[in-house]
Design a binder for these strands. Sequence first.
DNA 1: TATGAATGAGGATTCATTCAT
DNA 2: AATGAATGAATCCTCATTCAT
Lengths: 212, 212, 212, 212
Amino acid sequence: MQTFTMFAPEAASLGKSARTRAQLMDAAIAVFARHGIEAASVNEIARAAGLANGTFYVHFRDKDEVVSVVSLALAAEIARQLDEDMRDIECAIQRVVCATRRFLQITREQPPLGWAFLKACQVLPDLRQQVGVYMRQDIARGVKQGVFTEPVDDFLIDCVGGLVLSALLSCLSGTAAADAGARTAEMQLRLLGIDKEAARAAVGQALDAHPI
Amino acid sequence: MQTFTMFAPEAASLGKSARTRAQLMDAAIAVFARHGIEAASVNEIARAAGLANGTFYVHFRDKDEVVSVVSLALAAEIARQLDEDMRDIECAIQRVVCATRRFLQITREQPPLGWAFLKACQVLPDLRQQVGVYMRQDIARGVKQGVFTEPVDDFLIDCVGGLVLSALLSCLSGTAAADAGARTAEMQLRLLGIDKEAARAAVGQALDAHPI
Amino acid sequence: MQTFTMFAPEAASLGKSARTRAQLMDAAIAVFARHGIEAASVNEIARAAGLANGTFYVHFRDKDEVVSVVSLALAAEIARQLDEDMRDIECAIQRVVCATRRFLQITREQPPLGWAFLKACQVLPDLRQQVGVYMRQDIARGVKQGVFTEPVDDFLIDCVGGLVLSALLSCLSGTAAADAGARTAEMQLRLLGIDKEAARAAVGQALDAHPI
Amino acid sequence: MQTFTMFAPEAASLGKSARTRAQLMDAAIAVFARHGIEAASVNEIARAAGLANGTFYVHFRDKDEVVSVVSLALAAEIARQLDEDMRDIECAIQRVVCATRRFLQITREQPPLGWAFLKACQVLPDLRQQVGVYMRQDIARGVKQGVFTEPVDDFLIDCVGGLVLSALLSCLSGTAAADAGARTAEMQLRLLGIDKEAARAAVGQALDAHPI
DNA sequence: TATGAATGAGGATTCATTCAT
DNA sequence: AATGAATGAATCCTCATTCAT
């Protein structure tokens, strides 16, 4: 029945309530991915979780609540995983490259996660803002390291975010080739002020260091 | 009642049926802009057009039809206007810069148009594909002129499109400053392989040639 | 199908919309009478009217709207009928007696109307207030004629109204005998300051003058 | 948490089960008063009692049961208190006057009790009947004492009850003045056949004898 | 063509009630 | 006894769509 699992494993060791809630959240991601967030119905989420519709309301106040809870949890989980993967990387350029590549890799490996995240970003300004906060950290680091010469403001963050999300969409749609991550990373570096050749080199170096 | 007009003027000289249809299309844009495409209801579109709900179905088979017809017509109209504005520009770089700046200018001047277009792009793959076709023309011209060194494929087009749409969102949200068009154009050139300085220079030149 | 008709006849000569609305209002009265106002469901009202549930919302914004519209229309219709019946009566005492007797007679002859009115009064302060306005007219007339000596204020009106409504409940429950109208009228006169014997005499006189 | 207590104190000395049940009953009164009986939900009662919803069903078969149990207990408790207050009063007229005044005083001092009682009376014929039994005792005493000349039957009891309940509603709504109890008592005496002046005098005497 | 009343399926939400712990 | 998660029927309401006028 359950086709996608992200929160269920973490909740396996917790109480029954937490497990059911996790089931619902996983089901919500699957439904968001299939039909989009606005078209998702509470009944379908409950059904996908193998629960009665009323059970949904034991765990969430209303549809808006699952949407925001799930979306923020999604972003937090992705951010957590990226942080973990890049724990040892100091260089901001390498961080940006790795984050971008890993992000696209993760979402490609778990399309429901990718679609749900993408659709959530389109609908929830709060989520976009939160994602911007995550991205800004590495970008700010690069500015401090003197490698990103572009002035960093909300508009730049929005554009870089939009670039990555459009790459995500390409990947999920099947349009993109295997090197989409590398290309996206390179493009992103250019938006941040890195030279074409330097960007290409940095991506190549990252590919060598973290073939993934 | 009717607050936004795009198709009505063109239809003014045509038959009554065409005029009513144009009314409905303009109303649809306004409603899409306000509430989003999924949340838009046929009744509200008809009401916004000052017509009875039944009239809608005289002109469109169903809701999906207005969505696609209006969206594609929107894109075509914008493309037509850009083409007209750039009739005399030969240089692909200048065309890209002008198209980007004019696009953001148009959508900023007519927020309903901008919002409707943005939301339609998020929902309709067909529309994105069509927009890609428009963009590809100037980009291909640049390749032919030897100025865009990046290999042009669907993925690149998707990314460039995503960049512009995210800039559009920033502009509509009020986040962006007045130079958003110039910055977006410059970023786009970089994605297409133009050097940082060359991109900056090209945008500066365009600003001189076509101040607005 | 339709078991109770109050508004339908008046609407028979009007447009289709008015007729359907009247059907719904009559059905609402029947349902309010059977189950009470809070327990009445929109679906049941529509079903009782022989219409689809969605049709309800073509004619009323929501459940609250039917409740208040129907209740006020009910009160207005009863008041209209009483006014018509008492057009020629000048004496306030006779008016009070006749109004009370006729009111109980009408509601006894049409139990759904009686029950719906009673339940509406229990739930809608606005309706009670409106009924108070009607009652106050004849009472004020009696004060002007110098026959009602009791100071007339909201509290007195509330009490007199409560007396009549409890008599109505008795009648509808089958507890009351045929002379309930006369007894209620007499009690009401006493509350208004009329002497026991005078009240009895006035009621007797009214019975002679208006046997029905 | 618990704002209203009526049964809890009595149950303090009893077993745990009785105490929990009393908590639920007090909570039910508070909820009935706030939202009405039909709109009261079992969950809200349990929450108001500081208990889990399942606990409710340990003590009551279903919602209907609390409604009737609580309502009848409410009436019994009020009657008990009135009886106690009037232990030494022999004269039926004085008893009626005092009962009416004390009843309105008690309900005014404890609005939740007043509202819950009022709403319960509107919904439960059984409760009205039981209240009628209580009232009939003093009235029958008055008949035996030869002071109430009106024939006492169900209809009279219903009307007298209705009068008092409408006075209660006025008091709870804030419409009524401080002398509402005295006025209600006087009106009630008139309904029972006492002369205007005698009724006024009896109430005045009661006010002297029992200022509160 | 245009109208707008009517439809009924579908979605969000509530709530009395059950049951395993 | 107490808990509180789970249930699913019932309710309100919306909306795309049809159709007679």
